Simulated scan of single mutants.
Amino acid sequence: MIDNIGFIGLGKMGMPMAKNLLNSGYNVFGSDVNESAINEFQSLGGTSGKFLDWLHNVQTIILMLPSSKIVNQVIDEIIDHYASDQHSHQDHLVIIDMSSSYPDETRKNFIKLEKKNIEFLDAPVSGGVKKAVSATLTIMIGGKVETFTKCKRLLGSIGSNLFHVGPIGSGHLIKAVNNYLSATHLLASCEAVQLLQNFEVEPETAIHVFNQSTGRSSSTEYKFPSFILTESFDSGFSLELLRKDLEMAKQLFLHAGAMTNLPQIVFDRFDNASHTLDQDADHTEIYQFVSSYLLKRGKSNEKDSETICSSSNSSISF
């Protein structure tokens, strides 16, 4: 029997993920606010429509949405329109939130859904558009082991590295921390490369040395060669989305009472970059923002440093 899957959020990541589900033999119903995305999805063989129209035709719904706020709205609508008696001949409905949502909101949604006999997993992904296309994403799953086991084949059609990391909310928690680490690596690498360039070391040379040494990271091994050194800045992951993830990570450290100001410093850099660069800037364009402050000198630099770091008391001046 072909499983019916609902997919809400057919963006840069969601579209290739939904395509891989179609290629794996699933019957996929898709929804998105973007009409061109709907047209593309239909051309791939998917069935489109407002999700409330196909809600009772699916066994599983995947959410790939830009914020917790939107995830909460969609889940509330599902709860309002879901009638368990229409699913009496099927397994319970399962919702999988693959967005980068706030863990606390995820736990609240789990409680609401459990009251309606709707199963829930948080399963954010890492790997970017390239791995979404190749179905080799890393997926970090939080929730009941039984629900994860039920969905393992489906998730395996989207990613090649599946990790059940703990109870509900754990997936979103580790994803936020992962993106914080990724952003920190990227920022440090951008500053290091531009510092060395000031001493007439070519960026390509610096990156090559780092990648053969202990300073290497996914930023030096992948992002620099693919998007920064080529000046394409087209990774497919926006600066604004990374800023949102960093704000989430900053709050997690803050609420835990962690004695560190590094999450605040990293957030401030990306937050100021998001206000300085174009609204739709790629996150790899942080390299260009770094060049605006790193090696400026004198009074003009003091003024620029104040502007760049105005959102935080934990600023850094150069």
Rank of each mutant, 00 (worst) to 15 (best):
L121M: 04
T47E: 11
E40L: 10
K223T: 01
S99K: 02
A192E: 03
K131E: 12
C309V: 02
V58D: 02
Y26W: 08
G236M: 07
S101G: 05
Q288W: 00
G127A: 04
F163P: 03
E240G: 01
A281M: 03
Q73W: 00
Y26L: 05
Q59C: 05
E200N: 15
L55G: 08
T136H: 10
G166M: 04
S160Y: 03
V94S: 04
S99P: 08
E231M: 02
S48T: 13
A176S: 14
G169W: 01
I207C: 02
S232R: 14
E231H: 12
K50M: 11
K299V: 12
T149C: 01
S68P: 11
M64P: 09
H87D: 09
A258F: 11
D85W: 12
Q212S: 13
G45E: 03
G128K: 06
L65I: 13
V58P: 03
I78Q: 05
N57R: 06
L121E: 06
S292W: 00
K223P: 03
T205I: 14
T147R: 01
N178H: 15
S218E: 07
C309M: 14
V94H: 04
F270L: 07
H208F: 06
Q279Y: 11
K69P: 00
S84C: 02
N39H: 09
F227D: 10
L154T: 11
G215V: 03
L254D: 14
K12Q: 12
V33T: 13
A135D: 08
K250A: 06
Y102E: 12
V94T: 15
L181H: 11
H185Y: 13
E77C: 07
F120E: 10
N27T: 13
A132G: 08
G169P: 02
K69W: 04
S99L: 02
N198F: 05
V125G: 01
V125P: 00
K244P: 08
F7T: 09
K108Q: 14
V74W: 08
F163I: 11
V58S: 01
G11M: 04
Q59G: 15
P167K: 10
Q73D: 12
P225S: 09
E114V: 01
S311H: 14
S84V: 12
S300Y: 11
E191N: 04
A258N: 03
L252T: 05
Q194T: 09
I79K: 07
L65E: 09
L262P: 00
N117I: 01
N20V: 07
C190S: 13
M140K: 04
D280V: 02
S274G: 05
E146S: 15
Q59S: 15
N72E: 14
I265W: 00
I141N: 02
I95F: 06
D97I: 04
I174G: 02
S274W: 05
C309F: 13
T276D: 08
A192D: 03
M17A: 12
L63V: 11
E306H: 12
P203Q: 09
V266Y: 07
